[in-house]
Amino acid sequence: MKIATWNINSVRQRLSLLQDFLVKENPDILFLQELKCESEQWVLIESETPYNYYVHGQKSYNGVAILSKFKANEIVTNFPANPCFEQSRFIEITCNTDIGFCRFISLYAPNGGEVDSDKFKTKLQFYDALINYLEIIRAYDESLIIGGDFNIAPFDIDIHSSFKSSNTTCCTVEEKYKMRSILNMGFYDLYRLANPNTQEFSWWDYRAGAFEQNKGMRIDMLIASGRAAGYFQNSYIDYNMRAQHKPSDHAPVVAW
């Protein structure tokens, strides 16, 4: 099975890039974030692709989707105690796949704004609720895979030196603790499993030549439960998609 995750930063603006990516990679599952369109405005011509489309959109902001070659048995668009329930940041499906019954989640975690702001506190609350939810569904002993923009760089190797500050959002000790709590529950970071010592990034600011100078952070991840992780041996970050004309500020992450 091949899977991928991508914060596309407006599906309507990057439609041609998305179509190119689907042709090039042909993933079985694609997790998308930051669609910036309502569910009814989904712009792909579904009949021309082999995918089922599961979309939880929102006008102008947020929005998540899962493109799946397998038809979903169940679709969920929220989780208990989510403090951002009015924002489209979560979609979950269950499917019978080539590797058995699987649960898939596309996640777009809040950025958090300035450290110690109300938005930052909401981000931490979002993660507390998410961790509680994952504890519940982890007990089902299913294959669970999450693809998302977690807006947290979990380790120093995932952060360019220019961001290594306790006051930099996505890099604080509090945020790293939340991400590591998820990994310590028995989830595996598929990119890091395949590339244990490689420093690469998945997000770069549009400004100040950040991409050209490779000043970024690895905040987009594919994580899998132990039951699912064994099916994936390779993973890479598709820098080529970030180098295209008018790209997203994020690059896709692929695993197979």
Rank of each mutant, 00 (worst) to 15 (best):
L130S: 02
W203F: 12
A139I: 09
Y191M: 04
Q213N: 15
F104D: 02
A109K: 07
A229Y: 08
G186C: 01
Y108F: 11
R218N: 10
K121R: 12
M221W: 15
D220H: 04
K176P: 02
R192Q: 06
G112N: 08
F187C: 04
L183E: 01
D98T: 14
Y231V: 05
D116R: 10
I223D: 00
R138G: 10
K119Y: 05
L222S: 09
Y177D: 15
L144S: 00
R227L: 14
F126E: 00
D116I: 00
A139R: 13
K121H: 10
G226L: 12
Y127L: 06
W204I: 08
M179V: 05
S117T: 07
F187L: 01
F101R: 05
L130V: 03
M185V: 06
A194Q: 01
N167C: 09
F155H: 10
A208H: 10
R207K: 15
G226C: 10
A229L: 11
I157Y: 00
I137D: 01
I136K: 15
D98M: 12
S166V: 13
N167F: 12
D141C: 05
I131Q: 08
Y206N: 13
R227H: 12
S202L: 05
I145R: 00
G226D: 14
F101L: 10
S166Y: 04
I137N: 05
N111M: 09
E114Q: 15
E212I: 15
S106A: 14
